[in-house]
């Protein structure tokens, strides 16, 4: 047993962190929210170069995966930097197509996966029972839908449904479209893809929570009231200590899930990371005070994301049910 990242895995995370830190991600997030995907797509191109989108794609389709541990490492960093776009959905689409191929339906995988692995294309999707909205359908190359036992390539989508996090652009797919596959293999692959979506969302949530904690710790060290840094007050310290505890106990569940990829372990990770990130957002807002309650402070980019991530691809209640459904 060695339940630690390897040096290579840790270095991969650090290199993504450094790249995204240097890339002025907040302005790309704001542009994305305003409907300008150009800076966001430039970020995606760099992430593709770093190999992020190949991690969930098998080697047979030009990927390097599946590498769930590396995928978690990457998604934590993408969450830490609030990278916009259908990251989770592209991962889930890749897993869905790869799983279908394993069940003998190789056509869609051959057609779509190599471009997804290279980052030349991305995807969003809806899966039955996982909510009606396709994230960022306006900028995704492929819009996939699973209803019943049919996987379709959707032709279009309805009007923008504004999310509480404006960088999450939600659309309802139009009915119909080309049937890529059908039958029980689709249903099975969709369930597997939904677990991966929950897993990647858990990682993003953890990264979001870590960013909120870091920014808030920095703030309370420099904000003075009553002639002293507010970070010296015990009420402030204890709230931040609890935030760290929540996040640090979510981390091992995430990587434990990466090793087993069972529904129950993923649900435990999703539940814990989602709740910890949301608690971090509440703490960040409270400790920043009124300035934290503004759109203009970059903190808002993470604050508004924490709640949707907590609920996307598995609400806390759904996750708890899955934990106990395990044999």
């Amino acid at each position: 047993m060695r339940f630690l990242l390897t040096d290579e895995q840790a270095a991969f995370g650090r290199s993504l962190d450094a790249m995204l830190t240097a890339a002025d991600t907040p302005s790309a997030v704001r542009a994305w929210a305003a409907g300008n995907a150009v800076p966001g797509n430039a970020l995606w191109a760099r992430l593709a170069e770093a190999g992020v989108f190949a991690l969930a794609v098998p080697e047979a389709y030009a990927g390097v995966g599946p590498l769930p541990v590396e995928l978690a490492v990457a998604c934590v960093e993408l969450g830490r930097h609030a990278v916009p776009g259908p990251v989770v959905e592209t991962v889930a689409a890749a897993v869905l197509l790869a799983r279908l191929a394993e069940h003998g339906e190789e056509g869609p995988a051959k057609r779509l996966l190599p471009a997804l692995a290279a980052g030349a294309a991305n995807a969003t999707l809806t899966l039955q029972g996982c909510g009606p909205y396709a994230l960022d359908a306006d900028s995704a190359t492929y819009l996939l839908t699973v209803r019943g036992d049919e996987l379709r390539l959707s032709r279009g989508y309805g009007a923008l449904q504004t999310s509480a996090d404006p960088a999450r652009r939600l659309y309802r797919p139009e009915p119909g479209g080309e049937v890529l596959a059908s039958g029980p293999a689709v249903t099975a692959a969709a369930a597997y893809a939904a677990d991966h979506a929950a897993f990647a969302t858990a990682a993003q949530a953890l990264g979001t929570g870590l960013a909120l904690l870091d920014r808030t710790v920095a703030y309370v060290k420099q904000r003075t009231q009553f002639g002293t840094a507010i970070g010296g007050f015990q009420a402030v310290k204890h709230r931040l200590a609890d935030t760290l505890i929540g996040l640090e106990f979510a981390r091992p569940l995430l990587f434990g899930a990466a090793l087993s990829m069972t529904s129950a372990d993923i649900a435990a990770a999703k539940l814990t990371a989602g709740e910890a990130a949301y608690a971090a957002a509440r703490t960040a807002l409270q400790l920043h005070g009124a300035v934290g309650y503004t759109q203009e402070l970059d903190l808002s980019l993470w604050l508004r994301k924490a709640r949707p991530l907590r609920d996307a691809w598995g609400t806390p209640s759904q996750c708890r049910a899955k934990v106990l459904a395990a044999p």
Partner: peptide
Amino acid sequence: TALRDRVADAVVGARAYQLFTYANASRCAA
């Protein structure tokens, strides 16, 4: 389901603590 959720939290918390400890044990071993 309110009670069910707390039972689930007990399961998840035990697993989190176990894995957290495995990570710390791995650090100690290193």
